[in-house]
């Protein structure tokens, strides 16, 4: 699995204290269950750590929810000290289609 992380400055989330998002470009792959998703997030966190030059101390699963009947949104937090990077992963019929991370002030 090849992960390409692209940082984008965003104005539209500033009111939430978010200045940048990281879009993850990757090939499609299967995430059948939460265990698969957690393994993926672990690998992703290593790439995020390299990209931002910050050590990820721990990963927290926040929750998941259905978006319509075909998509599932998984949410995690990647902690660097007492701050965190929010991570949103979307699957479509259990195929990964999107990962976006948000980085605060």
């Amino acid at each position: 699995m090849n992960l390409e992380l692209r940082i984008k400055e965003v104005d539209s989330l500033r009111k939430k204290g978010i200045q940048r998002v990281i879009e993850v470009k990757t090939s499609d792959f299967t995430l059948s269950n939460l265990r698969d998703v957690k393994e993926y997030v672990h690998k992703l966190s290593e790439e995020v750590s390299k990209k931002l030059g910050r050590k990820i101390d721990r990963i927290e699963f926040i929750g998941n929810e259905d978006i319509g009947t075909r998509y599932i949104l998984y949410r995690f937090r990647l902690y660097t000290g007492d701050r965190y990077i929010a991570c949103r992963i979307v699957t479509y019929f259990n195929r990964h289609i999107q990962t976006i991370l948000t980085v605060g002030d």
Partner: peptide, 10 residues
């Protein structure tokens, strides 16, 4: 094109 609130979140 530029992202709005939810578009920035994917």
């Amino acid at each position: 094109y530029k992202d709005g609130y939810w578009e920035a979140l994917g």
